[in-house]
């Protein structure tokens, strides 16, 4: 791997350079306490200190609403409706979100290739940045606190700049095109980086090994926690909407007023809604709120046997953005017998 140093005073210039590759998306402040990825025109609005965005960056690869194709009843034909987003840059992705995309890749590329996702995935340039955990983070337990791949460039903050890891051919092209901005890595930069890594590791609140979780979830299916916690749930869907690895969708046909044409759209679904498990004949796989509540815990921790990582990356969004304060990590630890 190739390593470079970006001094702090060159950061702005580097960001402007990135804008040359396409639309730049980055975390910005959307309220007193919250951040979200937005299209950035003024690079000074980018927040390097954000904890987590409300929506995960998957929205750029798997849009919340997209037209799959248009149809025409008269000629009985389908019309491709893919809109090429062009090359775009996502700046500031934390390791958990980068690994979250790997989970989506496993479902949308490796497993059953999804053209729509794949086409967008090829257009996205990913610039990661390291972060410090807050009280909601448990990415360390999920082995998602360090991105070893899945990015074009990755930035580690030093005292006077950033240590950059170059992770792809595109990454090399980007740094080559503006190599006057960078310096060579010195021995003291490396020791600053390793010190910061140690400090980061010490900030996590939990360090257990959760490998047995998927079995315990099955074994603890009658645990009183499920009843107690699902009663707190409002079924708003915030936990799944803000999850970087949720990938359920629904499709709908929307006809035109001419009674002839129309389009088929797909949009994010949530297993917390009644209609998610509803099938022909009015049957429902998960007819109660309790069933739906359990499903998310099962899906994130037990439905991932072909992956070496779980479908949960420990980003903490489902807990921070739960209106009734359901604590996902605490619940899992209770199932494990930790708390």
């Amino acid at each position: 791997m190739r390593y470079l140093k970006l001094p702090h005073e060159k950061r702005r210039e580097f960001l402007i350079e990135l804008k040359g590759y396409g639309i730049l998306y980055a975390p910005v402040s959307i309220s007193e306490k919250n951040f979200d990825y937005k299209k950035v025109d003024d690079v000074d609005t980018i927040r390097f200190d954000y904890n987590r965005t409300v929506l995960p960056p998957r929205k750029y690869f798997f849009p919340p609403n997209e037209t799959l194709f248009k149809f025409d009843k008269k000629d009985c034909r389908l019309i491709d409706a893919y809109e090429d987003p062009g090359t775009f840059v996502i700046f500031g992705m934390h390791p958990c979100d980068i690994i979250g995309l790997r989970v989506l890749d496993s479902r949308f590329i490796d497993d059953q290739p999804d053209t729509y996702y794949k086409r967008r995935r090829e257009k996205g340039i990913i610039i990661g940045i390291d972060c410090l955990p807050d009280e909601y983070c448990f990415c360390n337990i999920r082995d998602a606190d360090f991105a070893d791949r899945g990015f074009d460039l990755f930035l580690h903050e030093l005292d006077d700049g950033y240590l950059i890891r170059v992770g792809s051919v595109m990454g090399h092209k980007i740094v080559d095109a503006c190599d006057h901005l960078f310096e060579a890595i010195k021995a003291e930069d490396i020791s600053v980086m390793t010190r910061k890594e140690r400090e980061k590791q010490a900030m996590f609140q939990h360090y257990e090994n959760w490998d047995n979780l998927r079995y315990l979830l099955e074994l603890q299916d009658s645990h009183p926690l499920w009843e107690r916690e699902s009663e707190k749930c409002i079924s708003c869907g915030n936990c799944t909407l803000t999850c970087p690895t949720c990938r359920c969708y629904d499709v709908q046909d929307v006809p035109e007023l001419d009674g002839n044409g129309g389009k088929r759209i797909r949009f994010w679904d949530s297993c917390q809604y009644r209609e998610h498990g509803l099938v022909a004949g009015g049957h429902n796989f998960r007819d109660t709120k309790l069933d739906r509540f359990k499903n998310r815990y099962q899906c994130k921790n037990a439905y991932c046997e072909t992956m070496t990582i779980s479908y949960c990356v420990g980003c903490g969004r489902c807990t921070q953005f739960c209106p009734t304060g359901i604590n996902y990590r605490k619940n899992l630890m209770e199932i494990r017998g930790d708390e």
Binding site: S31, C236, L241, P255, Y273
Partner: peptide, 27 residues
């Protein structure tokens, strides 16, 4: 449109929160 096409509309069940998150609002 659905009536004109010869089908029928699907009833919305999702709560406002769903569209609120997608609209980019904080809660």
């Amino acid at each position: 449109s659905t009536f004109l096409f010869g089908t029928y509309p699907e009833r919305k069940e999702r709560p406002v929160c769903h569209e609120c998150r997608l609209a980019g609002n904080p809660c």
